[in-house]
Structures are given as C-alpha cells and as structure tokens.
Nucleic acid binder design. Structure first.
Lengths: 207, 207
DNA sequence: CCAAAAAAACCAACTAGCCTGTTTGTTAAC
DNA sequence: GTTAACAAACAGGCTAGTTGGTTTTTTTGG
C-alpha cells in the first residue's frame, strides 16, 4: 500500500514528531485536556505508542513540545498580520478583526488555554511552561512596540494598550465557550477598536 | 465521641450538600479539573462516597451544582462592591482594584475557569452550563447599568465598557497562571482604569 | 402515645474501563 | 554490526458508577 520510500533517520524522526505534535494540538482543541490521552494522540497521529514514547518519553514532554510549537505559530501569525498593518496592506480596523478571528477560530488559542489551565494544577508543567509564555509575551510586545505608537505615552503606552487588547481577546474567547453570541462579540470588538484608536495609532498612519 | 445531636433530614441533607459543593470548588481551585475526582471530593468533604452519590448521582450533577453556587456567590460579591460604589463607600479606583483582587484571589474565578474549559470538550456539560452563565451575565449587566453611566453613550455604553473591563480581568487572570508579575498587572490595571474613567462614571459621582 | 413500617440518608466494597509508563521484541538506517 | 526508529503487549493505579447493606429520621396505625 504505502510506497515505502527510503527515508533517512532524520526524515523519519521529523515527520513522526510533526505528526505527534499536530495530533496533540488537534486533540486538545477537539476534546480538551481532560480527554486528551497519550494513546489517543498516537492513534490520531497514526503512530504506534512505542514510536511516541521513543520521541517523547512521557506526556509532559509531548505537551511542552506541542505548546512550544503553538506559541511559535501564534507569534508568527500575529507578526505577519502586524507586518501587513505596517506596510499598509491592512488598515487598523481589519487588523483587529483578523486578530480576533485568529484567536477565536484558530486552534492555537483554545489549545494553549487547555494547557495553561492544566498547568495551574501541575507545578512541574507550570515551571516548564513559564519560560515559553514569557518568551511569547516578549515577542508579542516587540511586535506591538514596532507596530503601534502611543498618542500620549504618559497616559498609556502602546505596549500596555495592546496588551490590554490581547487580554480582552483572551477574556472574550473564554466567554465564547459558553456564550456563542456573535452580536455580543461584534459589539464588544467595535467598542474595543473605538477605544484603542483614541490611544494608539499604527506606525504607518501619521494622520 | 461526636455529640450526636438529632438533626432533621432536611438539616442533614443541606449540610452534606454544602460540604460536597464546598469541597468541589476547593478541589477545582487547588488541583484543577483534571485532578478533581469524585472520590477526592468526598474525602475532602468528609462524606462517604455513598452519601455523595445519593445527593449527586454523577460527577456532572456535582459540577453543575457547584458552578451554580459559585456563579451566585460571584454575582453577589460584585453586586456588593457595586453597591458600595453607588452609596459612596468606595471610589471608582478602589472599586476596580477590589474587583481585580476578587478575581485573582477568590476561589470562584479559577474554579469556574476550570469548569468552563472542561465544558469546551464536553457537549452535555456545556449545554447544562450555558444557561447558568447567561444568567450570570444578565445579572452582571444589570449591575453595570445600575452602577455606571456612560459619558457618551453613542461611542460606548456603560454596559459594553464594563463588559470589556471584565474581559480584561478574565484575560489577565488567565495570563497570571503562568506569569506572576505584579508589576505587569499593576501597570495593566492602572491603564485600564485610566481608559475606563474617560468613558464611564459611577452613578453617584456627578462631577 | 408508642411500636413498627417506610423512607431518606449514609456507608463501604466492588467492577469494568481507561490511562500512563515500562518492557520486550522487531525493522530500518547508518 | 550497531544504533535509531518503530511496534505491541503488559502492569499498576486511578476513576466513575453500581450495588447491597446500615443507620437515622419520618410516617403510619393501633
């Protein structure tokens, strides 16, 4: 059946790891941390349990690696949007719409939420994840500083304003789990944008 | 040993239920949903497993009941703070500080977060919880409308502004799991308050 | 008013299933 | 031939729900 092409060790490893991490994220997204089992991940990935434990000795290693990948993808996604905003391909309004859509529809936010919440009750996981999230935040803040400028830095810096906005998104996404009310979120997003543009402007627009 | 006071059936039931719900919330807070087991709850509550299943036939019934109680307590706590703000016992600044402290330090937020996240991967739980959260939001929005008035309703209503603020709190609390950085949150809170007072005022202050 | 039956509250052990990590064995690459 | 990658079965532990039995309160009927 499968065309058993000859692959180098490195190709085999990389592919298997990729399958496992993708399956981990997908399973977290689909059924939540509580129902995410190592065997389930292996099954979804189409990889044997032995191969799984070979590459990731235990569940935590798998989770941490998946988180690392998720964070990297998220930072890259946001930075790409921010770059479009800086070079004028996006206006401020559509930028925030896109970020919100990314948060709500993409796999990464809810998957990472599952992991973060799980980490709250697991000291070791928390310790492993803490540096990852710090790194993510650092990257995001660099993007914000580069992409937005504050109207009045003495009141609110662009970094703080965008962090606030991200926290609104986080909060809204949590709410969205139990309250799928598009009208409510549209109204919220509109207000957020209205308030934001009072305090910050994208670095391109110098009106 | 125990002074076996004679209690009515109703007293016995009520007390047992209270112990079980309190233990549920406490356990969710302490070890997270993933590590919250029905037997663990019974143990913490000092109640036999039989008594537990007598009052709550399965885990979900217990979780839903605990959530109901948590939401009620939270709404009451916020309303109490809001009442203090309305009658002048609190100023706007300390009110928001108090709400944030309530979110971060109280049991309710993280316990309910655990449940909400768990509900994301559990259709039945989600369906049972949805009306509870709708009710909670309705109560909160009533409090907001009563306690705050918008400076310019055409731009941002007080209801939306306060919902935004609550979402910021939600998001910050999620962040706080992996990033315990008091300075960061102080800065954030300050900015939030600064921005809020531009758009809404408590109903008492008519300056 | 009291004994006896009924019902509610409570207790403790058991079961079937799942999950994680381990171990032993096999195949593919180097 | 040696090492890395993969496979599959197994063991120990935990969990949720069930079941048969006990204690406490309430109801019933003489």
């Amino acid at each position: 059946m499968t065309v058993s092409t000859r692959r180098t060790q490195d190709q085999r490893s990389t592919e298997t790891r990729r399958l496992l991490l993708a399956a981990t994220v997908q399973m977290l997204m689909d059924v939540g941390y509580a129902n995410t089992s190592t065997s389930g991940i292996a099954k979804r990935a189409g990889v044997s349990r032995g191969a799984q434990t070979h590459h990731y000795p235990n569940k935590m290693a798998l989770i941490v690696a998946a988180t690392e990948e998720m964070f990297a993808n998220f930072a890259a996604g946001i930075e790409a949007l921010a770059a479009d905003l800086r070079n004028g391909a996006l206006d401020c309004d559509t930028f925030f719409d896109a970020v919100w859509k990314e948060v709500l529809r993409g796999d990464w936010f809810y998957s990472s939420l599952e992991i973060i919440v799980a980490a709250r009750g697991d000291t070791e996981l928390r310790q492993q994840l803490a540096p990852l999230i710090l790194n993510l935040h650092k990257g995001l803040e660099a993007t914000w500083s580069q992409t937005f400028v504050s109207v009045n830095p003495d009141v609110v810096t662009s970094r703080v304003a965008l962090n606030l906005a991200m926290n609104v998104f986080r909060g809204m996404a949590v709410q969205a789990v139990l309250r799928r009310d598009d009208g409510y979120f549209r109204e919220m997003l509109l207000a957020l944008k209205t308030i934001l543009v009072i305090h910050v402007r994208p670095t391109t627009s110098n009106t």
